[in-house]
Design a protein around this nucleic acid. Structure first.
Lengths: 136, 136
DNA sequence: CCTTTACCCAACTAAAAGAGTCGAAATAAT
DNA sequence: ATTATTTCGACTCTTTTAGTTGGGTAAAGG
């Protein structure tokens, strides 16, 4: 498990929004109160908006809000919105030889690992995190 | 889940060794039959040897062998031997402010995700992979 | 001895990904 | 118009990955 800063920041920001609900928060406000680099945060909020997890409004009372209830947004959705790719091996598989079967077997292994991961992150919502309801 | 080439190559090599048991295979032989870059593979085998997963012997009949039965080596052990670190966030946590609690909550989340992952990779052995016994 | 075979190791390079910054443009009240 | 804020693409800096290179070690077998 490698947690990128993007994902971490995205979740921190979303949790702040979940706690502020239904009041909107501007990017600047989020940046200050949670020590997130402003311009980087803006880029991240852009990803979240394009993934329809968040929406923003202009004056009066400008800022970002969750686009749906915190209980319906899972951590998995956030990860996929931010990091895009669900997984991926770096090494390209050989096109022939006895290693073929081995590679197929490893594929299944990584798939099983991924499934285990998804079972956690797709079952935890922003509301869970906000309220401290965590998995075992 | 991000699978590095090092881990992938290590597992391919170990599976080859597990299948060849108890005959030793040289680095060159592994490199050729499984299309692994030789010098890179040597570095990886060095890690595996230092982690006591593999041992090598000189003439006569030189090469690498598993240092213990394939059924007692788990994928998790290999991952830890090769990539070292169990996990890690990139973003450094804030030293003060209301984000403190959020960060602690996220810590627990990542820990849960890690546990889920370990439950898979620490329960699958090289013998399982070699024989096609995979987790659900 | 001395060549051959194979491993050992530290330093190096190249390319990609990650973390952020910068600046100019768009938006929409007041 | 002006102000506050978001939006977008391009840009920089650093770290990690994926390898290579080159020099050295060990131990037969001739």
């Amino acid at each position: 498990m490698q947690i990128t800063a993007r994902v971490e920041y995205a979740l921190r920001a979303l949790l702040a929004l979940a706690s502020a609900e239904p009041a909107p928060l501007t990017a600047a406000a989020l940046s200050e109160s949670h020590a997130l680099p402003l311009t980087f945060l803006q880029a991240i909020l852009g990803d979240l908006r394009r993934a329809d997890l968040v929406l923003n409004q202009r004056l009066p009372d400008p800022g970002y809000r969750l686009s749906r209830p915190a209980a319906t947004i899972t951590v998995g959705q956030v990860l996929r919105a931010i990091d895009g790719k669900p997984a991926g091996r770096r090494a390209d598989p050989p096109t022939s030889g006895p290693a073929q079967d081995v590679v197929r077997t490893l594929d299944l292994l990584w798939e099983a690992a991924d499934t285990a991961l998804l079972s956690v992150i797709d079952s935890v919502t922003l509301a869970d995190l906000r309220d401290g309801h965590l998995p075992t």
